[in-house]
Nucleic acid binder design. Structure first.
Length: 491
DNA sequence: GTTTTGTTATC
DNA sequence: ATAACAAAA
Protein backbone atom coordinates (compact mmCIF):
# COMPACT_ATOMS: atom_id res chain seq x y z
CA UNK A 1 0.00 0.00 0.00
CA UNK A 2 1.57 3.24 -1.11
CA UNK A 3 1.61 6.13 1.29
CA UNK A 4 -0.07 9.45 0.60
CA UNK A 5 2.06 12.53 0.90
CA UNK A 6 0.69 14.85 3.55
CA UNK A 7 2.19 17.87 1.83
CA UNK A 8 1.13 17.14 -1.74
CA UNK A 9 -1.25 19.14 -3.83
CA UNK A 10 -4.83 18.31 -4.76
CA UNK A 11 -5.51 18.16 -8.47
CA UNK A 12 -8.98 19.08 -9.70
CA UNK A 13 -9.65 17.75 -13.17
CA UNK A 14 -12.37 19.83 -14.84
CA UNK A 15 -14.33 18.21 -17.62
CA UNK A 16 -17.92 18.86 -18.59
CA UNK A 17 -18.46 20.44 -15.20
CA UNK A 18 -17.23 23.93 -15.97
CA UNK A 19 -18.53 25.62 -12.84
CA UNK A 20 -17.40 26.66 -9.38
CA UNK A 21 -20.78 26.40 -7.64
CA UNK A 22 -22.16 23.01 -6.66
CA UNK A 23 -19.05 21.26 -7.89
CA UNK A 24 -18.51 18.22 -5.66
CA UNK A 25 -14.98 17.47 -6.90
CA UNK A 26 -13.77 21.03 -6.44
CA UNK A 27 -15.50 21.29 -3.08
CA UNK A 28 -13.92 18.10 -1.78
CA UNK A 29 -10.48 19.15 -3.02
CA UNK A 30 -10.72 22.44 -1.16
CA UNK A 31 -11.89 20.63 1.99
CA UNK A 32 -8.58 18.74 2.10
CA UNK A 33 -6.81 22.02 2.80
CA UNK A 34 -4.18 21.10 0.24
CA UNK A 35 -2.85 23.58 -2.31
CA UNK A 36 -4.72 23.22 -5.58
CA UNK A 37 -3.86 22.50 -9.16
CA UNK A 38 -6.80 23.10 -11.50
CA UNK A 39 -6.67 21.65 -14.99
CA UNK A 40 -8.95 21.25 -17.95
CA UNK A 41 -7.91 18.61 -20.45
CA UNK A 42 -9.07 18.94 -24.01
CA UNK A 43 -9.41 15.40 -25.29
CA UNK A 44 -10.07 14.79 -28.94
CA UNK A 45 -10.44 11.06 -28.95
CA UNK A 46 -12.35 9.90 -32.01
CA UNK A 47 -12.69 6.34 -30.70
CA UNK A 48 -14.11 7.52 -27.41
CA UNK A 49 -16.17 10.04 -29.35
CA UNK A 50 -15.05 12.91 -27.18
CA UNK A 51 -14.18 15.20 -30.06
CA UNK A 52 -16.82 17.92 -29.97
CA UNK A 53 -18.52 19.24 -33.06
CA UNK A 54 -17.54 22.65 -34.30
CA UNK A 55 -20.51 24.41 -32.76
CA UNK A 56 -19.81 22.77 -29.40
CA UNK A 57 -16.20 23.93 -29.75
CA UNK A 58 -17.44 27.49 -30.10
CA UNK A 59 -19.25 27.05 -26.82
CA UNK A 60 -16.29 25.34 -25.14
CA UNK A 61 -14.14 28.37 -25.83
CA UNK A 62 -16.57 30.73 -24.15
CA UNK A 63 -17.17 28.40 -21.26
CA UNK A 64 -13.47 27.94 -20.55
CA UNK A 65 -12.85 31.68 -20.83
CA UNK A 66 -15.60 32.27 -18.30
CA UNK A 67 -14.37 29.59 -15.91
CA UNK A 68 -10.78 30.83 -16.13
CA UNK A 69 -11.96 34.36 -15.32
CA UNK A 70 -13.97 33.20 -12.32
CA UNK A 71 -11.06 31.11 -11.06
CA UNK A 72 -8.67 34.01 -11.42
CA UNK A 73 -11.07 36.26 -9.52
CA UNK A 74 -10.89 33.79 -6.62
CA UNK A 75 -7.10 33.88 -6.63
CA UNK A 76 -6.62 30.71 -8.63
CA UNK A 77 -5.49 29.71 -12.07
CA UNK A 78 -6.81 27.24 -14.61
CA UNK A 79 -4.25 25.29 -16.61
CA UNK A 80 -5.34 24.23 -20.10
CA UNK A 81 -3.86 20.99 -21.29
CA UNK A 82 -4.35 18.89 -24.36
CA UNK A 83 -3.79 15.19 -24.79
CA UNK A 84 -4.74 11.81 -23.42
CA UNK A 85 -5.86 12.10 -19.79
CA UNK A 86 -4.74 8.52 -19.17
CA UNK A 87 -1.17 9.73 -19.65
CA UNK A 88 -1.47 13.35 -18.60
CA UNK A 89 -3.08 12.82 -15.20
CA UNK A 90 -0.59 10.25 -13.86
CA UNK A 91 2.22 12.33 -15.40
CA UNK A 92 1.07 15.44 -13.57
CA UNK A 93 0.73 13.45 -10.36
CA UNK A 94 4.39 12.42 -10.60
CA UNK A 95 5.82 15.77 -11.66
CA UNK A 96 3.90 17.90 -9.21
CA UNK A 97 3.84 15.60 -6.21
CA UNK A 98 0.09 15.42 -6.27
CA UNK A 99 -1.46 13.56 -3.35
CA UNK A 100 -5.07 13.38 -4.45
CA UNK A 101 -6.99 13.83 -7.69
CA UNK A 102 -10.64 14.91 -7.83
CA UNK A 103 -13.13 14.81 -10.65
CA UNK A 104 -16.85 14.47 -11.31
CA UNK A 105 -17.97 11.37 -13.15
CA UNK A 106 -19.19 11.89 -16.68
CA UNK A 107 -22.15 9.52 -16.56
CA UNK A 108 -21.19 8.20 -19.99
CA UNK A 109 -20.23 4.53 -19.70
CA UNK A 110 -17.26 4.70 -22.10
CA UNK A 111 -15.73 7.66 -20.33
CA UNK A 112 -16.45 6.31 -16.86
CA UNK A 113 -14.67 3.05 -17.74
CA UNK A 114 -11.67 4.96 -19.03
CA UNK A 115 -11.65 7.03 -15.84
CA UNK A 116 -11.68 3.95 -13.65
CA UNK A 117 -8.46 2.78 -15.26
CA UNK A 118 -6.94 6.19 -14.58
CA UNK A 119 -8.07 5.87 -10.98
CA UNK A 120 -6.42 2.47 -10.73
CA UNK A 121 -3.17 3.80 -12.18
CA UNK A 122 -3.16 6.66 -9.70
CA UNK A 123 -3.93 4.37 -6.80
CA UNK A 124 -1.05 2.14 -7.79
CA UNK A 125 1.42 5.00 -7.70
CA UNK A 126 0.32 6.43 -4.36
CA UNK A 127 -2.04 9.15 -5.51
CA UNK A 128 -5.58 8.94 -4.21
CA UNK A 129 -8.35 9.36 -6.81
CA UNK A 130 -11.84 10.64 -5.94
CA UNK A 131 -14.74 10.57 -8.38
CA UNK A 132 -18.09 12.21 -7.61
CA UNK A 133 -21.58 12.13 -9.01
CA UNK A 134 -22.94 15.36 -10.37
CA UNK A 135 -23.86 15.09 -14.02
CA UNK A 136 -27.23 13.63 -13.10
CA UNK A 137 -29.52 13.57 -10.08
CA UNK A 138 -30.07 9.84 -10.20
CA UNK A 139 -27.70 7.01 -9.48
CA UNK A 140 -28.64 4.63 -12.30
CA UNK A 141 -27.55 1.51 -10.39
CA UNK A 142 -29.78 2.33 -7.44
CA UNK A 143 -33.00 2.73 -9.40
CA UNK A 144 -34.46 -0.51 -10.74
CA UNK A 145 -37.87 -2.07 -11.18
CA UNK A 146 -39.30 -4.51 -8.68
CA UNK A 147 -37.76 -7.35 -10.65
CA UNK A 148 -34.33 -5.77 -10.53
CA UNK A 149 -34.20 -4.70 -14.17
CA UNK A 150 -33.73 -1.19 -15.53
CA UNK A 151 -36.85 0.84 -16.23
CA UNK A 152 -37.70 1.06 -19.90
CA UNK A 153 -40.71 3.35 -19.65
CA UNK A 154 -40.19 6.98 -18.84
CA UNK A 155 -43.35 7.45 -16.77
CA UNK A 156 -42.55 4.56 -14.46
CA UNK A 157 -38.90 5.58 -14.29
CA UNK A 158 -39.62 9.17 -13.33
CA UNK A 159 -42.36 8.28 -10.88
CA UNK A 160 -40.00 5.90 -9.11
CA UNK A 161 -37.21 8.46 -9.21
CA UNK A 162 -39.38 11.20 -7.73
CA UNK A 163 -40.50 8.94 -4.88
CA UNK A 164 -37.24 9.33 -3.05
CA UNK A 165 -35.45 12.07 -4.91
CA UNK A 166 -34.17 14.49 -2.29
CA UNK A 167 -31.10 16.20 -3.69
CA UNK A 168 -28.96 17.65 -0.95
CA UNK A 169 -28.47 21.40 -0.97
CA UNK A 170 -26.24 22.78 -3.70
CA UNK A 171 -22.64 23.39 -2.69
CA UNK A 172 -21.52 27.00 -2.33
CA UNK A 173 -19.10 28.86 -4.60
CA UNK A 174 -15.62 28.67 -3.05
CA UNK A 175 -14.44 32.07 -1.93
CA UNK A 176 -10.72 31.47 -2.29
CA UNK A 177 -8.71 29.02 -4.32
CA UNK A 178 -5.28 28.52 -2.69
CA UNK A 179 -3.00 27.34 -5.44
CA UNK A 180 0.13 25.18 -5.43
CA UNK A 181 3.43 26.98 -5.89
CA UNK A 182 4.19 25.31 -9.20
CA UNK A 183 1.46 24.87 -11.79
CA UNK A 184 1.48 22.95 -15.07
CA UNK A 185 2.44 25.12 -18.00
CA UNK A 186 -0.85 25.33 -19.86
CA UNK A 187 -1.82 26.54 -23.28
CA UNK A 188 -3.36 29.93 -23.99
CA UNK A 189 -7.03 29.42 -24.82
CA UNK A 190 -6.76 31.54 -27.97
CA UNK A 191 -4.09 29.19 -29.31
CA UNK A 192 -6.55 26.33 -29.34
CA UNK A 193 -8.53 28.18 -32.01
CA UNK A 194 -11.82 26.68 -30.94
CA UNK A 195 -13.80 29.46 -32.62
CA UNK A 196 -14.10 29.91 -36.36
CA UNK A 197 -12.21 32.89 -37.70
CA UNK A 198 -12.63 33.19 -41.41
CA UNK A 199 -15.43 32.93 -42.25
CA UNK A 200 -16.99 33.37 -38.84
CA UNK A 201 -20.05 31.22 -39.30
CA UNK A 202 -20.80 31.60 -35.59
CA UNK A 203 -21.60 35.30 -35.81
CA UNK A 204 -25.21 34.61 -34.95
CA UNK A 205 -24.16 32.77 -31.78
CA UNK A 206 -22.54 35.71 -30.02
CA UNK A 207 -25.55 37.86 -29.29
CA UNK A 208 -27.78 34.92 -28.38
CA UNK A 209 -25.63 33.05 -25.94
CA UNK A 210 -23.46 33.73 -22.97
CA UNK A 211 -21.44 30.59 -22.29
CA UNK A 212 -20.27 30.14 -18.73
CA UNK A 213 -21.57 29.91 -15.21
CA UNK A 214 -22.87 33.47 -14.98
CA UNK A 215 -24.71 33.11 -18.27
CA UNK A 216 -26.24 29.85 -17.09
CA UNK A 217 -27.53 31.38 -13.87
CA UNK A 218 -28.97 34.33 -15.75
CA UNK A 219 -30.66 32.10 -18.27
CA UNK A 220 -32.27 30.04 -15.53
CA UNK A 221 -33.51 33.09 -13.61
CA UNK A 222 -34.92 34.67 -16.75
CA UNK A 223 -36.73 31.47 -17.61
CA UNK A 224 -38.17 31.09 -14.12
CA UNK A 225 -39.28 34.72 -14.09
CA UNK A 226 -40.70 34.96 -17.59
CA UNK A 227 -41.66 31.56 -18.95
CA UNK A 228 -42.11 28.92 -16.25
CA UNK A 229 -45.71 29.79 -15.41
CA UNK A 230 -46.79 29.22 -19.02
CA UNK A 231 -44.36 26.38 -19.63
CA UNK A 232 -46.94 23.69 -20.30
CA UNK A 233 -48.06 25.49 -23.46
CA UNK A 234 -45.22 27.89 -24.10
CA UNK A 235 -42.67 25.12 -24.42
CA UNK A 236 -44.26 24.03 -27.69
CA UNK A 237 -44.08 27.40 -29.38
CA UNK A 238 -40.91 27.88 -31.40
CA UNK A 239 -42.03 31.41 -32.27
CA UNK A 240 -41.83 32.41 -28.60
CA UNK A 241 -39.19 32.25 -25.86
CA UNK A 242 -41.08 29.57 -23.97
CA UNK A 243 -38.30 27.08 -23.20
CA UNK A 244 -35.44 27.37 -20.75
CA UNK A 245 -32.66 27.20 -23.35
CA UNK A 246 -30.50 25.71 -20.62
CA UNK A 247 -29.35 22.74 -22.69
CA UNK A 248 -25.85 23.98 -23.60
CA UNK A 249 -25.29 25.25 -20.07
CA UNK A 250 -26.32 21.88 -18.63
CA UNK A 251 -24.33 20.04 -21.26
CA UNK A 252 -21.10 21.79 -20.33
CA UNK A 253 -21.88 21.55 -16.64
CA UNK A 254 -22.04 25.30 -16.11
CA UNK A 255 -25.07 24.60 -14.00
CA UNK A 256 -25.96 21.32 -12.33
CA UNK A 257 -29.33 19.60 -12.50
CA UNK A 258 -29.36 19.87 -8.72
CA UNK A 259 -29.13 23.66 -8.89
CA UNK A 260 -31.98 23.68 -11.39
CA UNK A 261 -33.99 21.38 -9.14
CA UNK A 262 -33.59 23.60 -6.09
CA UNK A 263 -34.34 26.76 -8.02
CA UNK A 264 -37.61 25.27 -9.23
CA UNK A 265 -38.48 24.07 -5.71
CA UNK A 266 -37.92 27.61 -4.47
CA UNK A 267 -40.34 28.94 -7.08
CA UNK A 268 -42.87 26.30 -6.07
CA UNK A 269 -42.63 27.46 -2.49
CA UNK A 270 -43.13 31.01 -3.75
CA UNK A 271 -46.37 30.12 -5.51
CA UNK A 272 -45.47 28.92 -8.99
CA UNK A 273 -48.10 26.53 -10.30
CA UNK A 274 -47.41 22.91 -9.55
CA UNK A 275 -48.28 21.77 -13.03
CA UNK A 276 -45.86 24.09 -14.77
CA UNK A 277 -43.03 23.18 -12.42
CA UNK A 278 -43.80 19.49 -12.75
CA UNK A 279 -43.76 19.77 -16.50
CA UNK A 280 -40.42 21.50 -16.56
CA UNK A 281 -38.88 19.06 -14.09
CA UNK A 282 -40.10 16.23 -16.31
CA UNK A 283 -37.79 17.60 -19.00
CA UNK A 284 -34.94 17.36 -16.52
CA UNK A 285 -36.32 13.85 -16.03
CA UNK A 286 -35.98 13.02 -19.72
CA UNK A 287 -32.35 14.06 -19.52
CA UNK A 288 -31.94 11.78 -16.50
CA UNK A 289 -33.67 8.98 -18.41
CA UNK A 290 -31.24 9.39 -21.32
CA UNK A 291 -28.20 9.01 -19.07
CA UNK A 292 -29.90 6.16 -17.27
CA UNK A 293 -30.57 4.32 -20.52
CA UNK A 294 -27.05 4.86 -21.82
CA UNK A 295 -25.69 3.55 -18.53
CA UNK A 296 -27.69 0.35 -18.67
CA UNK A 297 -27.59 -0.13 -22.46
CA UNK A 298 -24.19 1.08 -23.49
CA UNK A 299 -24.75 0.47 -27.20
CA UNK A 300 -27.64 2.95 -27.21
CA UNK A 301 -25.67 5.23 -29.52
CA UNK A 302 -24.98 2.61 -32.15
CA UNK A 303 -27.68 -0.05 -31.99
CA UNK A 304 -31.46 -0.06 -32.09
CA UNK A 305 -32.79 -0.34 -28.56
CA UNK A 306 -35.67 -2.29 -30.06
CA UNK A 307 -33.87 -4.94 -32.09
CA UNK A 308 -36.83 -5.35 -34.44
CA UNK A 309 -35.54 -2.19 -36.09
CA UNK A 310 -32.43 -4.10 -37.16
CA UNK A 311 -34.70 -5.29 -39.97
CA UNK A 312 -35.95 -1.86 -40.94
CA UNK A 313 -35.26 -0.82 -44.52
CA UNK A 314 -33.58 2.54 -44.14
CA UNK A 315 -33.02 4.28 -47.44
CA UNK A 316 -29.57 5.47 -48.36
CA UNK A 317 -30.72 8.81 -49.67
CA UNK A 318 -27.64 11.01 -49.87
CA UNK A 319 -29.51 13.77 -51.69
CA UNK A 320 -32.36 13.78 -49.20
CA UNK A 321 -29.96 13.87 -46.27
CA UNK A 322 -28.00 16.69 -47.88
CA UNK A 323 -31.16 18.71 -48.52
CA UNK A 324 -32.22 18.18 -44.93
CA UNK A 325 -28.82 19.21 -43.59
CA UNK A 326 -28.84 22.31 -45.75
CA UNK A 327 -32.32 23.44 -44.76
CA UNK A 328 -33.46 22.99 -48.37
CA UNK A 329 -36.14 20.34 -48.14
CA UNK A 330 -38.89 22.63 -49.34
CA UNK A 331 -40.85 21.92 -46.14
CA UNK A 332 -40.96 25.23 -44.26
CA UNK A 333 -41.01 23.96 -40.67
CA UNK A 334 -38.15 21.57 -41.36
CA UNK A 335 -36.04 24.14 -43.16
CA UNK A 336 -36.75 26.79 -40.53
CA UNK A 337 -35.52 24.44 -37.82
CA UNK A 338 -32.34 23.47 -39.62
CA UNK A 339 -31.60 27.07 -40.48
CA UNK A 340 -32.14 28.11 -36.89
CA UNK A 341 -29.61 25.41 -36.03
CA UNK A 342 -27.08 26.75 -38.54
CA UNK A 343 -27.52 30.32 -37.39
CA UNK A 344 -27.69 29.86 -33.64
CA UNK A 345 -26.29 26.41 -32.87
CA UNK A 346 -29.60 25.48 -31.30
CA UNK A 347 -33.03 24.31 -32.38
CA UNK A 348 -36.34 24.51 -30.53
CA UNK A 349 -37.32 21.15 -29.08
CA UNK A 350 -40.68 20.92 -30.83
CA UNK A 351 -38.95 21.60 -34.13
CA UNK A 352 -36.23 19.04 -33.35
CA UNK A 353 -38.98 16.44 -33.19
CA UNK A 354 -40.50 17.64 -36.46
CA UNK A 355 -37.15 17.72 -38.28
CA UNK A 356 -36.07 14.37 -36.89
CA UNK A 357 -39.39 12.74 -37.73
CA UNK A 358 -39.21 14.05 -41.28
CA UNK A 359 -35.70 12.69 -41.78
CA UNK A 360 -36.36 9.33 -40.21
CA UNK A 361 -39.86 8.73 -41.52
CA UNK A 362 -40.65 10.70 -44.67
CA UNK A 363 -37.10 10.37 -45.99
CA UNK A 364 -36.49 7.09 -44.13
CA UNK A 365 -32.89 7.97 -43.38
CA UNK A 366 -31.18 6.11 -40.55
CA UNK A 367 -31.54 7.87 -37.19
CA UNK A 368 -27.79 7.50 -36.65
CA UNK A 369 -27.16 9.88 -39.56
CA UNK A 370 -29.42 12.47 -38.00
CA UNK A 371 -27.83 12.00 -34.61
CA UNK A 372 -24.35 12.45 -36.05
CA UNK A 373 -25.41 15.64 -37.79
CA UNK A 374 -26.94 17.08 -34.65
CA UNK A 375 -23.77 16.33 -32.74
CA UNK A 376 -21.75 18.16 -35.33
CA UNK A 377 -23.92 21.26 -35.36
CA UNK A 378 -25.57 21.65 -31.95
CA UNK A 379 -23.94 23.70 -29.22
CA UNK A 380 -25.74 21.50 -26.70
CA UNK A 381 -24.73 18.21 -28.33
CA UNK A 382 -25.14 15.75 -25.49
CA UNK A 383 -24.28 12.21 -26.42
CA UNK A 384 -26.70 10.53 -24.05
CA UNK A 385 -29.63 12.84 -24.73
CA UNK A 386 -29.03 12.79 -28.47
CA UNK A 387 -29.00 9.03 -28.74
CA UNK A 388 -32.05 8.56 -26.55
CA UNK A 389 -33.97 11.29 -28.35
CA UNK A 390 -33.23 10.14 -31.88
CA UNK A 391 -34.20 6.61 -30.99
CA UNK A 392 -37.34 7.99 -29.40
CA UNK A 393 -38.35 9.77 -32.59
CA UNK A 394 -37.33 6.87 -34.81
CA UNK A 395 -39.57 4.56 -32.82
CA UNK A 396 -36.70 2.21 -32.04
CA UNK A 397 -36.03 3.58 -28.56
CA UNK A 398 -37.16 2.97 -25.03
CA UNK A 399 -40.73 4.16 -24.44
CA UNK A 400 -40.49 5.54 -27.95
CA UNK A 401 -43.11 7.26 -29.99
CA UNK A 402 -44.84 4.46 -31.88
CA UNK A 403 -43.41 4.35 -35.36
CA UNK A 404 -46.73 5.24 -36.91
CA UNK A 405 -46.79 8.51 -35.01
CA UNK A 406 -45.58 10.46 -37.99
CA UNK A 407 -45.45 14.21 -37.56
CA UNK A 408 -47.05 16.10 -40.39
CA UNK A 409 -44.75 19.12 -40.64
CA UNK A 410 -47.53 21.23 -42.17
CA UNK A 411 -49.93 20.51 -39.33
CA UNK A 412 -47.20 20.98 -36.77
CA UNK A 413 -46.50 24.36 -38.30
CA UNK A 414 -50.13 25.37 -38.21
CA UNK A 415 -50.49 24.29 -34.60
CA UNK A 416 -47.27 25.54 -33.09
CA UNK A 417 -46.32 28.42 -35.37
CA UNK A 418 -49.86 29.66 -35.97
CA UNK A 419 -48.83 33.12 -37.12
CA UNK A 420 -46.03 31.78 -39.28
CA UNK A 421 -43.53 33.99 -37.51
CA UNK A 422 -41.00 31.24 -36.90
CA UNK A 423 -40.97 30.33 -40.58
CA UNK A 424 -40.82 33.98 -41.58
CA UNK A 425 -37.80 34.51 -39.38
CA UNK A 426 -35.74 31.59 -40.63
CA UNK A 427 -37.03 31.14 -44.18
CA UNK A 428 -37.18 34.70 -45.47
CA UNK A 429 -37.98 33.46 -48.99
CA UNK A 430 -41.47 32.76 -47.66
CA UNK A 431 -41.89 35.90 -45.60
CA UNK A 432 -44.34 37.57 -48.00
CA UNK A 433 -46.51 34.53 -48.50
CA UNK A 434 -49.97 34.77 -46.89
CA UNK A 435 -50.32 32.85 -43.62
CA UNK A 436 -52.68 30.41 -45.27
CA UNK A 437 -49.80 29.02 -47.37
CA UNK A 438 -46.72 29.68 -45.34
CA UNK A 439 -46.46 26.09 -44.08
CA UNK A 440 -47.20 24.59 -47.50
CA UNK A 441 -46.02 26.98 -50.20
CA UNK A 442 -46.32 24.35 -52.94
CA UNK A 443 -50.09 24.44 -52.50
CA UNK A 444 -50.35 28.20 -52.97
CA UNK A 445 -51.92 29.32 -56.25
CA UNK A 446 -49.38 30.43 -58.81
CA UNK A 447 -50.63 33.99 -58.74
CA UNK A 448 -50.27 34.14 -54.95
CA UNK A 449 -46.72 32.87 -55.15
CA UNK A 450 -45.91 35.36 -57.84
CA UNK A 451 -47.28 38.25 -55.80
CA UNK A 452 -45.20 37.06 -52.84
CA UNK A 453 -42.09 37.03 -54.99
CA UNK A 454 -41.70 33.29 -54.58
CA UNK A 455 -40.32 31.09 -57.35
CA UNK A 456 -40.49 27.46 -56.37
CA UNK A 457 -37.50 25.58 -57.69
CA UNK A 458 -35.54 28.82 -57.96
CA UNK A 459 -35.94 30.93 -54.81
CA UNK A 460 -37.15 28.12 -52.59
CA UNK A 461 -37.15 24.42 -53.43
CA UNK A 462 -40.08 22.20 -54.23
CA UNK A 463 -40.61 19.63 -51.47
CA UNK A 464 -37.99 16.85 -51.63
CA UNK A 465 -40.78 14.39 -51.01
CA UNK A 466 -44.53 14.29 -51.22
CA UNK A 467 -45.72 14.28 -47.62
CA UNK A 468 -48.58 11.84 -48.12
CA UNK A 469 -46.48 9.46 -50.22
CA UNK A 470 -43.58 9.64 -47.78
CA UNK A 471 -45.88 8.88 -44.90
CA UNK A 472 -47.44 5.91 -46.68
CA UNK A 473 -44.03 4.53 -47.66
CA UNK A 474 -42.84 4.84 -44.08
CA UNK A 475 -45.88 2.98 -42.78
CA UNK A 476 -45.38 0.28 -45.41
CA UNK A 477 -41.72 -0.10 -44.42
CA UNK A 478 -42.76 -0.38 -40.79
CA UNK A 479 -45.25 -3.09 -41.68
CA UNK A 480 -42.55 -4.96 -43.61
CA UNK A 481 -40.21 -4.73 -40.68
CA UNK A 482 -42.77 -6.25 -38.36
CA UNK A 483 -43.38 -9.11 -40.78
CA UNK A 484 -39.67 -9.82 -41.15
CA UNK A 485 -38.91 -9.56 -37.45
CA UNK A 486 -41.77 -11.85 -36.48
CA UNK A 487 -40.23 -14.45 -38.82
CA UNK A 488 -36.80 -13.98 -37.29
CA UNK A 489 -36.25 -15.51 -33.87
CA UNK A 490 -34.60 -13.12 -31.41
CA UNK A 491 -30.94 -13.94 -30.86
C1' DG B 1 -44.83 14.19 -27.00
C1' DT B 2 -49.66 12.14 -33.66
C1' DT B 3 -52.22 11.89 -37.74
C1' DT B 4 -55.64 10.11 -40.55
C1' DT B 5 -59.94 8.17 -41.29
C1' DG B 6 -64.48 6.90 -40.46
C1' DT B 7 -68.62 7.69 -37.88
C1' DT B 8 -71.97 10.42 -35.74
C1' DA B 9 -73.91 14.78 -34.25
C1' DT B 10 -75.12 19.38 -35.42
C1' DC B 11 -75.65 23.49 -38.27
C1' DA C 1 -71.09 21.14 -44.88
C1' DT C 2 -68.52 20.71 -40.91
C1' DA C 3 -67.38 19.93 -36.19
C1' DA C 4 -66.47 16.52 -32.71
C1' DC C 5 -65.03 12.21 -31.41
C1' DA C 6 -63.19 7.37 -31.43
C1' DA C 7 -60.42 4.03 -33.55
C1' DA C 8 -56.75 2.47 -36.41
C1' DA C 9 -52.29 3.04 -38.12
Amino acid sequence: MATISATGAALVWFRRDLRLADNPALHAAIETGRPLILVFIDQRDRALGTAPGEAADWWLHGSLASLARDITAAGGRLSLLRGDPAELIPGLAREHGIAEVFWNRSGEPGIDVRDRTIAATLQGSGTKPHAFAGTTLINPDALLTGSGTPYKVFGAFWRAALRDLAPRPSLPVPQRLPMAATLPAGAALEDWRLRPANPDWAQGFHDRWQPGEAGAAQRLERFLDDALDDYADGRDRPDKPGTSMLSPHLGFGEISPRQVWHSVQARLAAGTGFQAAERFLAEIGWREFAYYLLHHFDDLRTANFNRNFDHFSWRSDADGLAAWQAGQTGIPMVDAGVRQLWATGWMHNRVRMVCASFLVKHLRCDWRDGMAWFEHTLIDADRAVNAASWQWVAGSGADAAPYFRIFNPVRQGERFDPEGRYVQQWVPELARLPLRWIHQPWKAPAITRQTAGLKLGAGYPFPVCDLAAGRDAALAAYKDMKTVSSDTPPD
